[in-house]
């Protein structure tokens, strides 16, 4: 396979560095956001489970809390 396609007449360094930078920034933002989401879901469930049973049951009936529990159990 010809390297010409990657060298791009000497402009490859500019093109690949632009795409590489964008890819890395997007990947970093994705991983960081996903990590934060998972951590918050986990903390939310932990805090809810630490509540007295009656209050925990009340929270479990709430739609958003139910959705968090489902989403976390899926992952």
């Amino acid at each position: 396979m010809s390297f010409e396609i990657f060298l791009m007449d000497g402009y490859g360094v500019y093109v690949w560095s632009s795409f590489g930078f964008t890819f890395l920034v997007c990947l970093f933002l994705y991983i960081r956001t996903k990590k934060t989401l998972k951590k918050l879901e986990k903390d939310f469930i932990k805090e809810a489970q630490n509540l007295p049973e009656e209050q925990f049951e009340d929270i479990r009936q709430q739609k958003i809390a139910k959705e968090i529990l489902i989403s976390h159990s899926r992952s």
Binding site: L29, T33, T36, E41, D43, F44, L51, I64, S71
Partner: peptide, 23 residues
Amino acid sequence: YVAVIFLMKYRIETIRIKRKGIR
């Protein structure tokens, strides 16, 4: 990509509010 990040961040902000409620 923006939609994916936006939805994850939206969920993060919602869970933060819910956690305040629990506390």
